[in-house]
Design a binder for these strands. Structure first.
Lengths: 180, 180
DNA sequence: ACAGTATGAATGAACG
DNA sequence: CGTTCATTCATACTGT
């Protein structure tokens, strides 16, 4: 395997993993559970795109829990934000083919996809919690709403899904690339 | 952590597996042989990085064979591509190694590695076959060559956010946003 | 039952 | 920012 440990990367993270997880090699930042916890909290408090100063501060504070650089914090937020959106995008597409976007009621006939949707909701719920300060990353929520359409137009070609969904009568199978 | 994604619902997949691949526990997607077959076919037809639409379509079509979400398709291609690359990298390294070592002493006689190389050359050769559409994922080989750069220096910070520091003698921990 | 492997999933890092 | 790459974690699978 690859037990090259003697390199300049140093690992921390030996912080007693209870569930015996990661072996933990280094070379890349491997956040402590505490670090992740804090970052997540900040994120859920509404912070999305921390300023340089904020990054510095967060990084400094988190260094208490283990090795960390500001770029790690930067990337973390970048990724977390991006993936939240990505996830949301994917799910809403997946869920599309039977929930006509708001169904007016929890009619949700087929429960098949139900769980997936639930999951995200619970993940998103508390965004408002700590919305009490001047973040300069203000109103992320607002901004996000505004930004909400620009993203969709990526491949304008593919919008068969949004509202209708009788397309579940898929022709048994035609997977020539052209048909995708 | 972010395990909100881990539970993708439940299992289906009872579709009689010949060689007993019908694991059928859940927690993670377990593709049907049919699903794998199709995915592989697409891959060999040249598809590497399907767009969101394509992912969606594929997913929908494959759902005919069993439960599947678009993220599964996404990951599948991600992984498949990565592993192909990985494999190739290893082999070419091995081969360099092999050549430089044995070249002087011997004519290429041992052959073990040859087959491996052959194998996916033949695997790649067919890329053009179905290249009749806008796949947007073209000729991975070329792209890969271009991409061949600084993958090494993980530590060197080419990072815009590094040059800042003076303040902050960290108070043990106060991460309320206001304090950032 | 266990070691080794194949592969789904997650995520840090970075590119365009 | 959205995407893509590399690496790692976790689990299903397979052979012994």
């Amino acid at each position: 395997m690859e037990m090259d440990e003697g390199l300049s990367g140093f690992c921390i993270k030996g912080s007693g993993k209870n569930n015996g997880s990661s072996g933990t090699k280094c070379g890349r930042w491997n956040p402590t559970t505490e670090q992740v916890r804090v970052l997540t909290e900040l994120f859920r408090s509404g912070l999305r795109t921390p300023s340089t100063d904020q990054i510095q501060n967060i990084s400094t504070q988190l260094s208490f829990y283990g090795k960390i650089e500001s770029k790690n914090v930067f990337y973390w937020f970048q990724n977390h934000k991006a993936r939240e959106r990505q996830k949301r995008r994917k799910v809403s597409i997946d869920e599309n083919d039977f929930i006509s976007r708001d169904n007016l009621n929890n009619k949700i006939s087929s429960s098949k996809r139900f769980f997936e949707v639930m999951e995200y909701q619970s993940d998103q719920r508390v965004i408002e919690t700590l919305q009490l300060f001047p973040l300069n990353s203000f109103d992320e929520n607002e901004q996000e709403k505004l930004r909400f359409h620009a993203n969709e137009c990526r491949e304008a070609s593919s919008f068969p899904y949004t509202i209708n969904s009788p397309e579940m009568d898929l022709p048994p199978l035609d997977l020539r690339l052209s048909s995708l």
